[in-house]
Design a protein around this nucleic acid. Structure first.
Lengths: 202, 202
DNA sequence: TTATTAATCAAACGTACGTTCGTTTAATTA
DNA sequence: TAATTAAACGAACGTACGTTTGATTAATAA
């Protein structure tokens, strides 16, 4: 056999990327083999090379695309809030909403930096930093206006991001809570912590 | 060559486990090869089998030992606090202090559940659940006594753990902040969140 | 309809994998 | 010192790896 009936390049391309994500999550990038990937797509190993330059560039493509899409999605968000409080709530909602829908990408982005080449890693790290800055600046602004108490901006940024991204590791669509409920709970935790309830806030 | 001068079983055993941790963090468990591991230890691949039954049991041993040690360390902690506030602060301090010192184990425990066999995975998951319950119960108690406002206990537990464990991913011993400073900041974030400062708390 | 391009295949390349085997040397015990 | 045990070795097993090559068929353009 050679070219199969009904085969379309764009379709195969997407199938390869989708299957690659699933396999990387399941086995890790280094451990995923192109033979597994080919089998998942329903194609011979050699055919993969019509769509990727090498195994390494496949990972780089997945990760940079994820970061680009994430950054662009935040930029495109209509209502980012006015006051620091509103901005922080908007960020929390956006981050959770976006990430739970892309749990495979998030898992890969968090785990496989180690497997990127030097250039690709630098690129992804820079993009991650750029995204983190969005939250950092909201916190900075809030502290400046006096809406938020003094705090270490770097640690607070990392802490909030870790907490929000952590949802990806336990969230299940069929679970007890909807995404919107989860967002509300996290907004409460971020804004007021565990101890300070509404009754204590202004 | 055969037995080498000065070779001691216990020493080699420890060297194997230490090198395995480093390699698993760097490459992922599936991608780590026993030939790499042997080279790191300075031994032939075949010699590894004097200390492990198989590659799979090596991972299981690393992960269950990590969970056992963690659970036991919390149990052995002297001052777990009296009031819910104090207990929560004690947990935050313990968790960060313990985890930043064992970043490799934490990374492996978080990443390589997927590579465990069914029995070992069930065991590790149960132990993780048991550890999480320590925090869960502190929160539950605090809500019951009225020290903490009503909240979703499950989500709050996961959120706090994600935030605290997240420190492992950026903490560096030579970094700007000491572990104790990082603990204080996180105690503030957990107890009062970003918005509610001391000036608003009781 | 014919020529061209797109999409796939089968086969093979050298290399490395986890693991087993029997042997050899060092340290310990009798 | 002699016998035993501990700790390593080198070589090999069948299998699978990422990738390259050239041929083959399907869809499209002329």
């Amino acid at each position: 056999m050679a070219r199969t009936k009904g085969s379309v390049g764009a379709t195969t391309q997407k199938a390869i990327l989708d299957a690659a994500k699933t396999l990387i999550v399941k086995h890790g990038f280094e451990a995923m083999t192109l033979r597994q990937l080919a089998a998942e797509v329903g194609v011979q190993p050699a055919s993969i090379y019509r769509y990727i330059e090498s195994k390494d560039t496949l990972l780089a493509a997945l990760m940079t695309e994820h970061m680009d899409t994430l950054i662009h999605a935040w930029e495109a968000l209509e209502d980012k809030g006015e006051t620091p409080d509103e901005q922080l709530e908007a960020f929390v909602a956006f981050h959770i909403r976006y990430h739970v829908e892309r749990r495979e990408d998030v898992f890969i982005a968090n785990m496989e930096l180690r497997s990127l080449g030097e250039a690709a890693r630098a690129d992804v790290v820079a993009k991650r930093r750029a995204y983190e800055l969005n939250l950092w600046r909201i916190l900075e602004e809030g502290v400046k206006t006096g809406d938020f108490p003094e705090t270490d901006l770097e640690v607070a940024t990392y802490a909030i991001l870790a907490m929000l991204t952590g949802v990806c590791f336990w969230y299940r669509p069929e679970g007890r809570l909807t995404v919107e409920q989860i967002i509300e709970i996290h907004q409460g935790l971020v804004m007021r912590g565990v101890v300070s309830g509404d009754f204590q806030a202004v």
